[in-house]
Amino acid sequence: MAIPPRIALFRRRIPQSIVRPVIVRHCRCFSSCLRDAQQQKSTSQLDDGLSTTYFGFEKIATGLKEARVGAVFSSVASSYDTMNDLMSLGVHRLWKDYFVRGLDPGTNPLSASPPSNALPRGWNILDVAGGTGDIAFRLLDHASNVHNDYTTRVTVTDINLDMLAEGRKRALATPYARSSRLSFVEANAENLVNIPDNSVDLYTVAFGIRNFTNKEKALREAYRVLRPGGAFACLEFSKVNNTAFDAAYQRWSFGAIPLIGQLVAGDRDSYQYLVESIAQFPNQTEFKDMIMDAGFIVPGRGWEDLSMGIAAIHKGIKPVEGSAPQ
């Protein structure tokens, strides 16, 4: 996939003022600007039959992406929340709250009608790439407070042990730390070895899927673990629809976010990767098609834009036997 022209255009203008001065001082292994110089060499090296993927704007061998992403998240784990607040001006909390409220997890034990005992009590939720537990705590809070459901349980998986450690630490401040309702598991979203087929009611992934090396494979894996009728829900950065707002947003993300990363977390490169990976992620329609290709039924339009498309919620439902999508 070629770099979107919008980004290319942007990169021509911005580095002069903001990015360049930093780059010359730091030796960076994956900055977009250094990559400009190295692009010829690196792509030709990779063209000899090796499969490649994008790491931000950089094209790297598929096998390397996992480690590189791992390095990014290990480095941001401790300052994750502060940084999110600074980067999104606090809006990420609203998005996550809205995401969970929309999923409405949990079943009131009194409302489950007696004849349909097919469902075990409570939902089995899998929160993928949810290391810090942001979504998991909200899901459990919603089930307990809204539905009086104290049996819904969340399994948080993440590929990164540092993020999981951060989540465990935070869980101590919640009522779920020592309960069986919350567990943290290290797992690769493309190969959820510990999760049996057809066992999950709700699969959530919030701001994680764009870091996956092979998104299609992860979606197929989500399809496998979900039970028929189970829902796949994804909260992820997406594409802004409004041109004028998009220009401002691109300035903010490429100009301010790496700078904030450098000032607050002392780590510019990781945050440069974050914004590049956002720009690189498919738009709403493409991602909806990816979800459908994995076998899901996509209800309605298939997604819901948040903040004019900065983020979007995508949902898919695993069809029940005998009622395949038309």
Partner: peptide, 25 residues
């Protein structure tokens, strides 16, 4: 109500998660 929607989803062989994800919040 959402309760009726969930009950319907269960009858149709789907789950509560289907009912709550099917439409906009």
């Amino acid at each position: 109500s959402d309760a009726a929607l969930r009950a319907g989803a269960r009858d149709a062989g789907y789950t509560d998660a289907t009912a709550s994800s099917m439409f906009l919040p």
